[in-house]
Every structure is written in structure tokens, then in C-alpha cells.
Nucleic acid binder design. Sequence first.
RNA 1: GCGGACGUGGCGGAACCGGUAGACGCUGGAGACUUAAAAUCUUUUGCCCGUAAGGGCGUGCGGGUUCGAGUCCCGCCGUCCGCACCA
Length: 840
Amino acid sequence: MASRFNPLKADAAWQKVWEENRTFAARDDSPKPKSYVLEMFPYPSGRIHMGHVRNYTMGDVLARYRRMTGHEVLHPMGWDAFGMPAENAAMEKGVHPGGWTRENIATMRAQLKRLGFALDWSRELATCEPEYYGHEQALFLDFLEAGLVYRKKATVNWDPVDMTVLANEQVIDGKGWRSGAEVEKRQLDQWFLKITDFADDLLEGLKSLEHWPDKVKLMQENWIGKSQGLQFRFALSDGGSVEVFTTRPDTIFGSSFVAIAADHPIAKQLAENSEEVAAFVAKCKAGGTSAAEIETQEKLGYDTGITATHPFDTTWKLPVYIANFVLMDYGVGAVFGVPAHDQRDLDFARKYNLPVRRVVSEGDKEAPEFEGDEAYTGPGTLVNSHFLNGMDVADAKREVISRAEADGWGQGTTVWRLRDWGVSRQRYWGTPIPIIRCDKCGSVPVPRDQLPVKLPEDVSFDIPGNPLVRHPTWKHVDCPSCGGNAERETDTLDTFADSSWYFIRFASQPDDKPFDKEVAEQWLPVGQYIGGVEHAILHLLYARFFTRALQQIGKLDVAEPFAGLFTQGMVTHETYYRDRGEGVSRLWFNPEELNFESDKVTAKADGAPVTVGRVEKMSKSKKNTVDPTEIVDQYGADAVRWFMLSDSPPERDLEWSENGIEGAWRFVNRLWRLFDGLQDAQGEDKDLDRKLHRTIAGVAEDIDALSFNKAVAKLYELVNAIEKAKPSASRAAAIRTLPRIVAPMVPHLAEEVWAGMGQDGLIADAAWPDVDPALLVEDEVTVAVQVNGKLRDTLLLPKGAPRESVEAAALASDKIVRILDGKAPKKVIVVPDRLVNIVA
RNA sequence: GCGGACGUGGCGGAACCGGUAGACGCUGGAGACUUAAAAUCUUUUGCCCGUAAGGGCGUGCGGGUUCGAGUCCCGCCGUCCGCACCA
């Protein structure tokens, strides 16, 4: 062996061996227990970034470790290849989205291979290929047949310049993010998936996900937003009625007004006959929707002059307002206001001088007069509420609901925050929705033998809008039902649909259908899913919905797609900038443009100082990215992998640093020298034996828990111990065992050493070393001796020594004798094998 | 506003069920090897007093429980994240 590890040679050599042997191909028919390890597949944006490297390294360590512990591992990789950036590139650079995407995939695939991940590349897929999206179209038709898809008019953000629909995030201050044009609200026919049918299942299912972070479960729970309450009717003075929804029916005797949304049908009708109302409605709609604006927005109301009759007292009339704080798309778009016990209602009531009546006691406050500007929403006893008086809030809710149901003016209902999933996108680069629209027959599904509906390749992006709409021939087809002239649906599916079932396709990919039920069920659910927390809600919720929908229609008997979820932290880096004055964006610097002196940082270009900014997520705009490929070429894949696992706990952010990668590189070389200097010797080194076995067990535990930073620390300790140990048979054995313990993390070096030691086969196929349980037990322990809880001495005693002898040894210690100074201790607490605490 | 997470040396972090705080890495100091540098090795590195032996103080702040608290309880302060006029 050469004395210095040559990563460039070793990386390439072993990557070739793995590829030629198809080492990491997962066998469906394997008798071994199956383990599915998956990292969220990347969007092919151009080049991989450090965040990808960290994500895939974590998954890779787990996948390789599982292989070593006797599992048949499925660890696939693919491309979330549809989406807007490709169309943006097409518009900016005049390239074709498909060409741009496929080139990026080729680049990124090569970059990933360069890192030596144990991936089953034979299952690679890209969602932009008909071989994938054609099956997605079939699933869409399955859902359609099952009644899980419907079409309705919905409001969208329309950019009149780009002639396209914008997501909410793409609307900035009411203007399109690209065009800068004033965004219009448009009503368009859109396809929806009935995710709300599964709202309760998706909520209840969270309870079964023991290996998901609580944080993510909570975020999903809030997103689904279950509210139980009463929906009921007020009779109106104009002869009509209005439905309202409340979660606080108990406070019904505290109501002082009814408020409806500006786009409530009643408000719309009033607006038609009154310019004043129309003006007010317009004013409400003009308000911004951003968080900051909502926070500061004043409550506005318009008294319609109509009154509502209280359901429990026909002589009690409540004014009906149109109010800007009532949302049409939650509940029924109308509420009854109880100012004393709801902050918004209180703000509104104080502004318009409406009565504020206490109906829930607050401590000893029971009087109907409610003081102050802070609503009371806590628990209490019902007061000033006729037959409800004396009940607690929960009982009062039940009582009101049961009376409303008995009298027929309302009923207990559940309202969800979750809305149906609008999947129509007026874009080219997505899965075409397999529907044909016929004037006579309406929406007709594309016959299955005509799938996939392929995207036309001959499109241009020199004019704004969806090229599918203006393509000369693509959309013109005969109606499959009546044979007359018809048009294809030109909308494509939301790309979240593509990522909602890719993990199933990885498990099973027949040509003639989306997946084979039995084969997919062998692998699913995914045992460990790893990705960024930014997907905590949408992607994970949609994937859970798809899986349940497939279960409902009998295609796949799996309820939850991801048994284990781990959300890893970002890779961050220091930033460098110069302020350019008020209202002008900062000028950011790449570290390569700078000189780092001991006390300041200056720009190479002009020698003037530059401010060192916060440590932030690597991003192109802040110029704090580090290209993984350059680093891999410099240090080799193993050093980069090792650094990605070191120091920071995986769920937290990892700060990229030159010193960090240097440290990792040093360690790789220390390992190499250790193996290189292997000498057989005689003699036993019991301490080292124990250290080795404790490390094998500890690292296994840490990898299972994804605590890679702890595994790394344990390996450092072991290597330190081996380096310091004198030659012995134990030391030689430790060095021979070490490659297998580090193999999941630094696989290239491990293979190189394994071969160098003359071992048969690949270390990738080797078994995780056995642990000798006898060596996990110490025969001597260090016992702490405390006086009044303060450490005064330590004693080396045989493990399992009886209390009396431990206590005697502690009291006999010179230091303790001196501290006690002849006085008898009041009490002595002995924790076997741990400590003695003397209370003096 | 609602919900949640987290505060440990110069830095990233470890510390199992309440039992020796600071493992491991980085940085810094001192030294060895070398003509020199790099690499490598040895040693040291929480703070304060002390030549030393030794002692005191230390896990955001203030209390509490306990023989014993980074860990449990109560109250503050700070940072970060998610949702947001959700009735």
C-alpha cells in the first residue's frame, strides 16, 4: 500500500466495481427482510448542492448499514423533473424545457455517482418521461372513476402579461413575480382531487406515525385544521335567512351581531342594488392578504340594516354587518359575533359601539358588563345565559347543539381548514391531464389504450402563455364518445402529483401499469424517508392522500406511505456583503473574491473592507454556495461524506467550513495510515477489546437512530485508542475489524483496505461485525465520591461491589477523611457502580 | 395573535431513567521533526485565585423539589421555526 490514500483513484475504481457487479440492485424476490430507504428525490435544477450531498449521505449510511445487517435494501434515485424552472429557462434562454431538464439530469446523475452512493440506478426514473407520467394519467383516470376527481370553477391569480396562473407565493404585493404586472383574480374551470374526503383519516393516521417528528405531525394537524361546532340559521328581517358556523355555540347568549363575508351571496346581492354596498365590498377586497397587512388591518364593517332573529328569543334582533374579517372560504362565510369571548369580535364591537356581554365567568367576574379590550377565551361557567347558566363550556356546547338539532334550526358539524387539492396548472411542462372536452359530451376521459397523452415536443416559448393552447394540432382530437370535434384539456397536473406516488413506482415498475400491487406491497411502506422540513406539509400530505386513495380503490393495501420520517437540517455558510445604501439591495461576495486577514475581510478587487454577515442557508443569490464537485475532486468522496456526518446533529444545520473538511480529510488519512501500518503481534489488550466492541455496538445504535454525529465521535475515540495502544493481537484484530465499522460512511477507503487485507468479496457485501456481549461489561468502574453533592474524589472499584464495601472505601479515602475532619457523616447515599454521596 | 422547538467553553456539539458537565471535532498556545515549509507527532486549551498542592465559580436569568438538577416543576428573558382575521 502507498502511505497516502489516493481518493481519486480509489473512488473511481470502486464505483466502477459496484456498477459492474450491480452491487446495489434490489431484488424483489430476495428471502432477506426488506428495507426501503429513501431520500426525497431532487429537482434537476442544474447541479447538485451541498444540501443534496448531506441528505443523500445520511440515507446512504443507513442503506449500507442495513445491507450489512442482513437486509435486502431498496435505495433508489430519480428526478422530480417537471416544473416551472424549466419553463423559465425556456423563456430566458430559448432552450426547450425537456432538453434543459435532461441535460441537468445527466450532470447531476454524474455528480451523485461521483459520491459513491449505494443506489439502485436500474430503478431510476424521471417524472417528465411518458414512461412515468403516462401511468400517472392512468391513476388520474382511476381516481376519476372512483369519484375522487371533480371539476369546478375556482379563483386563480392570473398574470395578464405572462398569461398564466400564479401560485400565491408568486404574487408579491399584488404583482406577478416575473412580469411585475398587476395580478387579476380570474374564475377558471379547474380539476380538483377530493383530499377532504380523507381529512379525518389523514388526521387520525398521524397518530400511527410513531417514527415521525412531532413537529411535522403537528404542522399537518394544524394544516388539516379540524373544528367542531354548530352550523345554524338566523331568520332575517328581509324574509331570508343566513347560515353561520361557530365553535362556541355555548356563547350564543353573548352575541351582539351577525357578520358576513364581502363575497357572501347576500352581500353580493345587496351590492347589486346599492352602490354604497358595492363600494364597501370593493374596499374589502382591495385589502392585502400578506401576514403583515392582515395583522395591522383595521376591522371594517357595513351595517346592512337587515336584522337577524336570535334563535332562542324571537324578540332579540341582531344587526347584520358585512365585515372584512370574515372569510368566504372558511366554514359558511358568516359568523355571529360574541365580543366578550372573541378578540376579533371585540375589536369590531368596540369600533361600532355594539353591546359586549359576558356569558362565561372569568374567575369571580360574572357581571354582564364586560370591560377592557381583551376578550376572555378561557374556561369558566356560563352566566347571563338563561338555561345554560351554571354549566361549564363543554356541557353548554352540547346543550345548545342538541336543542338546535331538536328544534331543527341547526346541527353539530365539523369544519376543516383543509381544502380540496386544485391540480390544474396552465403550463406546458407537466403531466397532461388525460381529458378531452367535447361540446356535446362534456369532459370525456382519454381511453386508456390511448395513454400516455404525450406532450408535444415542437413548442416555443417566445410568446407568453401556455404553448399547449396555441399548438396548431395537439389539442384537436375527435371526441372518444361521440366522434365529433373536441379539444384536449390543455392544463397539466400540479407537480406535487408527480411526487405523490414516485416511491411506489420505485418499488415496482412494470410497463403496462403504474405498479404491481403485490411487488409494491413487499417494499412499502418506506422504512426511512429523509428530506427537508420544507416538505413537512404539502408533499407529505399529498403523498399520504394518494396512498390512502389508492387503498380505497383497492390498488394498494398500504395506509401510510412513510413509516419513518427524518427531516434533516440545511447546509449553511457564512455570508459576505456590502451595504449600498437605503433601498438598494446588498452587494454579496463569494469567498473566492475576498482576502481574509486576521482582523478584517477585504475584497480582492478594490482592497476595501467587506462585512461578514450571518451564517445562512447556501444560496446563489447570497453567493455563499460551495460546489460539491470541486470539493470532491480535491478531497475525495469519503472525506466529504465524513464531514457531512460530523459535528452537527443531522436535524440541525451544518455550517460548511474549510477547517471542517480539512479535519475530515485528516481523519481519512489517519485511518489509512492505521491500516497501512498493520502489524500482527502477540498478547491481549483487554481495554482495547472492550473499546472495540463497545464501539461496534454504539455505532450500530447511533446509525439506527440516525445520530451520525455521535457515531462519528465514537469512531474518533476508537481510532485514538488504537493509535495509542501498544502492538498486540487485540490491536491487530481491532484494525482488521475497523474497516467494516467505517464502511457505511467511507465506503471507498473501506473497500480499498478490505481488498488490501486480502479479504474475499466486497466490503459492501460484508456483514456488520458481531459484538461479544461479554466485552460490553466492564469489570472495574470509576465511582464518584461526593460530599454534599460536590465531587471530591473518584475510586476505581470492581464492578458490582457491595454497598457496604463501596461506602467503606469512600469513607477511607484520604481526601474524604480530610474533608470530614473527624466528624461522622449524617447520611451516606450509595448508587452502585456510580457514586457515593456523603451528607456531612 | 396562535402553536412549537431550542438556549451548555472561543466555535460545532456530547452527557442513557435525576448521579463524575464539557466526550469527540474545530480553533488557539507550547514543543518535536525539518536548512525551511507542508504534512505528521507530543502536549495544552471552561472561567477565577494560586509557583504548586489545592480551592472557588460555572449549562440564558430568578425561584423551587431533591442527598444530588444541564436534565424535573414554577416564573421571566432571548433566539429560531410553522400557521395566521379559521369564527
